[in-house]
């Protein structure tokens, strides 16, 4: 299957790129003096001593060591992985929410021109609200919610904030996609007396796929970033956001540790994007280039 082979080739290229980045890291470390490069008082290149830029192998080695001095402390790798899984779950929930919301919004905007003019500016504006300001508000509202037996939990606030970031690229990309059929195609459906719903299902949604897939990938990445930032700003435990912060506090004595957590966060984003990549494999029939 050519789709699978292309996917493997892409993964291979990504791996090579990663290796190149690691080599570059070591080259910079070797070439640039430990104190960095200064011009007068302005710093041109950062410090490259082992505190600021630990060796790649030190970071990898740190992954295998215990997280702390406590007796039953897990290795950094185990701690990072479990935190990553926790955050990934939240990010996926947030992503799914964002996708549903973004799609609905896009369909609404496609259906009614007025809605596009009324809503789109707010959609754009919504993304300029700083997450850090939003997070405590969402937690506050959630805390006051009474959902019968269901308790509003911290992670739900985090998922909601993640969805708030994820819906934006989906809404914009889906709208562009839904509007992508040519006038000739739309008129063909009109001439067949196909209603709006039929036209949506048989024309607009399939035509939207090539626009939607990159939007979904972007949405996955922003959902991960949103979840991590929201974990930090709501003080949610168990996720990679919290891990990054607590490991960073150990940076002065244990410089490799925060990099390990960062590595975890990066892998998280890759996995999320990979999940969407699988979706693209399923929908590859619709990823054709346009023909007239």
């Amino acid at each position: 299957m050519s789709g699978v082979r292309a996917g493997l080739r892409r993964a291979g290229v990504a791996l090579v790129a990663l290796l190149v980045a690691l080599v570059l890291w070591e080259v910079v470390k070797a070439v640039v003096p430990d104190t960095g490069v200064h011009l007068g008082t302005a710093s041109l290149l950062p410090r490259t001593d082992d505190r600021a830029m630990p060796h790649v192998w030190d970071v990898l080695a740190r992954l295998g060591e215990a997280e702390s001095g406590a007796r039953d402390a897990p290795t950094v790798l185990a701690a990072t992985l479990s935190a990553a899984v926790f955050t990934l779950g939240i990010a996926l929930v947030g992503w799914a929410l964002g996708v549903v919301g973004g799609l609905l919004l896009a369909v609404l905007m496609q259906r009614w021109r007025v809605a596009e003019h009324a809503v789109l500016p707010w959609v754009v504006l919504s993304q300029t609200v700083p997450l850090v300001a939003l997070a405590p508000l969402v937690v506050g509202w959630g805390g006051r919610l009474e959902l019968g037996p269901l308790q509003w939990e911290r992670w739900m606030s985090v998922a909601l904030i993640a969805s708030y970031l994820a819906f934006f690229p989906v809404a914009v990309g889906a709208l562009r996609g839904l509007q992508s059929p040519t006038a000739a195609q739309v008129e063909l459906f009109r001439a067949q007396a196909a209603g709006w719903g039929r036209t949506l299902v048989s024309l607009r949604l399939p035509a939207a796929v090539p626009h939607l897939l990159p939007a979904l990938r972007l949405g996955a990445a922003t959902a991960v970033v949103g979840a991590i930032v929201a974990e930090v700003s709501t003080g949610t435990r168990g996720g990679i956001g919290r891990l990054v912060v607590s490991y960073a506090q150990a940076a002065s004595g244990d410089p490799a540790k925060p990099w390990a957590a960062l590595l975890g966060a990066a892998v998280l984003g890759l996995v999320a994007a990979g999940v969407v990549g699988l979706l693209g494999l399923v929908l590859r029939r619709y990823r054709t280039a346009e023909v007239s």
């Binding site: 040519t182 000739a184 195609q185 063909l188 001439a191 024309l203 399939p206 035509a207 796929v209 029939r285 619709y286 054709t288 280039a289 346009e290 023909v291 007239s292």
Partner: peptide
Amino acid sequence: IAFQQAGLLPW
């Protein structure tokens, strides 16, 4: 109807 542009659905 058949117009100058074939207007086929590529998928």
